[in-house]
């Protein structure tokens, strides 16, 4: 009996907790956008945030790398820790945090520079390479990881904005992983892409799970079901349910979750 519980515990702690949020509240001026969210996100896992528009899933995502700092009226309360360190500690510089927590945005937003410079920018400003050869290597590695190397290797000097939408988004992913982050946040990364590009990016997300903790916000429940191992359902600023993806989609506990995934609300 005792052995069994121990085994059980081993199973559950096998996946380390990467990000833990406790009692997170977010206010936009007087608007209470995130209400008391508690969540623990595991390392080397894809975690999907789903929920109707305006439910706060993107807001919560942007709390994890403090992108909300750029919004004057936004106020974050509570406790968010990465590897046990409070990221809202006054000693934390958001710039350093964001190198560790990469982000991919809804619309592909490559810099209007060459493909090479797009990927090399992060490593350059963080001093991750000592010379050109090392930088080249980082760029190649990142582009390979983002499954863009074969398409881009012959035109690294071409503008990143000249790529197709799907390629641009993969370029943005390459740019995000070039700074060697530990967490990758994706804010609806496929919403501006066609189904083929979406499939490529989804495949990529699945591969990225090997090295990173990936958190993805998505509107598509099919996508959440396809790529994620854990799913969190947000509704009206509340985290309604957070569990294994299979469980959420087959046997949700909360009636709101069930309504949403069956298409009745949202």
């Amino acid at each position: 009996m005792e052995d069994l519980t121990q085994m059980d515990r081993a199973m559950s702690t096998q996946q380390d907790i990467k990000i833990s949020a406790k009692n997170v509240q977010v206010y936009y001026d007087k608007n209470h956008a995130i209400k008391d969210v508690n969540v623990e996100i595991a390392d080397k896992t894809v975690t999907a945030f789903i929920g109707p528009s305006g439910c706060g899933k993107s807001t919560f995502l942007r709390c994890i790398n403090r992108m909300n700092d750029t919004i004057d009226i936004c106020r974050v309360e509570g406790d968010i820790r990465i590897d046990g360190e409070d990221i809202y500690d006054p000693k934390v510089d958001p710039v350093q945090l964001r190198a560790k927590v990469g982000m991919v945005f809804q619309k592909p937003n490559p810099f209007p520079k060459s493909i090479y410079d797009n990927v090399a920018y992060g490593p350059k400003i963080h001093g991750l390479s000592r010379n050109k050869a090392e930088l080249d290597e980082i760029v190649e590695k990142s582009l390979r990881k983002a499954a863009l190397w074969n398409e881009a290797k012959d035109r690294l000097d071409a503008p990143g904005t000249g790529l197709s939408g799907g390629q641009q988004q993969r370029l943005c992913i390459a740019r995000a992983i070039a700074t060697a982050p530990e967490v990758l946040l994706m804010d609806e990364p496929c919403s501006a892409l066609d189904p083929i590009a979406t499939a490529q990016v989804e495949e990529l997300i699945d591969e990225l799970r090997q090295s990173y903790s990936v958190v993805i916000v998505t509107h598509s429940m099919q996508q959440a079901a396809r790529v994620s191992q854990k799913t969190a359902f947000f509704h009206l600023g509340n985290l309604v349910e957070y569990d294994d993806t299979d469980k959420i989609f087959t046997n949700p506990e909360d009636p709101r979750t069930e309504s949403y995934i069956s298409g009745r609300i949202g």
């Binding site: 190198a99 945005f105 937003n109 810099f111 209007p112 963080h126 943005c172």
Partner: peptide, 20 residues
Amino acid sequence: SIRDAALGVGASKMQSVFHH
């Protein structure tokens, strides 16, 4: 989106302004 992109890879406010 360009500012977001720069901040997203960990550029400081000033770097995002002057570089991009």
